[in-house]
């Protein structure tokens, strides 16, 4: 395996990881406050559709991006309303949200854009100086803007969750909402904020596909990526840095299996395609001894005045 191949696989892995990063970080924040949203894939699809539609009609990629974040936020609000205000079972609300997003994005695509089209999305942006560094430059610093932002998101999320009063509140609400409530934290408001923020990030995850990496939209563009993003939250044990590591691992193995096939190495394609899923499980199983601090109130209803 020559250097150029390794560089190719790693830089491929980074591109593939981008949508997962946005969605999984968003989901991490929501889950830390105690809300599981299984509907990430549906929200991503709505974000992808809206970003593409707006970019196509206005010619502005930035407007498309903002619209995707906004649409994601609206879907986050819907999820928050149903799971926080109406205290519905979170798992099933998420499945409902997924079905709704999948159907609505396909329907809107059918009546507004109709046929598959392509646009010129965010161009690759070589970072001056850094992109010249051999190997590292090629792997990390020759991507489009949304890839860089996805990476910047990791330290931001870490800081937000660990070093700010807001982060403390989120964790408190997720660990012990009754105690947080008695200390005067508005549990519902914190959860509304986190789930809406999570929705916005899922929307951007969709946009990163439709107007930056793939530059097109069609029915079910995400092909189940949102579910992988949810899985990665568990891989990372609700820690942004480990979620990031999981996304990179999954995507890099995926890039590797593509390369195996392209290079004509004699592996049945279906077996190659299984690799990222198997490796992710095995790596997590190998870390069985790790400490996991699951938010104790995850997937549980909170009702004031109850024990």
């Amino acid at each position: 395996m020559s250097w150029s191949i390794i560089i190719g696989i790693l830089s491929s892995g980074i591109r593939l990881a981008t949508p997962y990063l946005y969605a999984a970080v968003g989901e991490t924040i929501g889950q830390l406050s105690g809300v599981v949203n299984l509907g990430v894939d549906g929200v991503m699809l709505m974000g992808a559709y809206v970003a593409f539609f707006v970019a196509l009609r206005t010619g502005s990629l930035s407007l498309g991006l903002i619209a995707a974040a906004g649409m994601g936020g609206v879907f986050g609000l819907i999820m928050a309303f149903i799971s926080v205000t109406l205290k519905a079972e979170q798992g099933i609300s998420g499945i409902g949200l997924y079905l709704f997003g999948l159907g609505l994005s396909t329907f809107l695509f059918g009546i507004t854009i109709r046929n598959v089209q392509t646009i010129d999305g965010f161009p690759d942006l070589a970072i001056p100086g850094l992109s010249r560094i051999p190997v590292i430059g090629e792997i990390f610093f020759q991507h489009n803007i949304l890839v860089y932002v996805a990476f910047a998101l990791i330290p931001i999320a870490w800081f937000l969750l660990n070093k700010t009063p807001f982060g403390l509140k989120v964790r408190a609400v997720g660990q012990n909402p009754e105690a947080a409530d008695s200390l005067g934290v508005n549990v519902a408001r914190v959860r509304y904020l986190t789930v809406t923020l999570g929705g916005m990030l899922s929307g951007v995850a969709g946009a990163s596909l439709s107007i930056a990496l793939l530059n097109t939209f069609q029915q079910n563009l995400t092909n189940g990526m949102g579910f992988i993003a949810v899985a990665l939250v568990y891989f990372g044990g609700w820690r942004p840095v480990l979620v990031f590591a999981g996304a990179l691992l999954f995507s890099t193995v995926n890039a590797l299996q593509i390369w195996l096939q392209v290079a004509g190495i004699n592996v049945p394609s279906d077996v190659a395609l299984m690799l990222p899923y198997i490796v992710t499980i095995l790596v997590l199983a190998a870390m069985a001894k790790r400490r996991v601090n699951a938010p104790a109130a995850l997937n549980k209803r909170f009702e004031r005045g109850e024990s």
């Binding site: 499945i95 409902g96 949200l97 999948l102 159907g103």
Partner: peptide
């Protein structure tokens, strides 16, 4: 797809 969206809405 409209029917798919309706299904989701009903679940929600």
């Amino acid at each position: 797809a409209l029917i798919g969206a309706l299904n989701g809405l009903i679940v929600l």
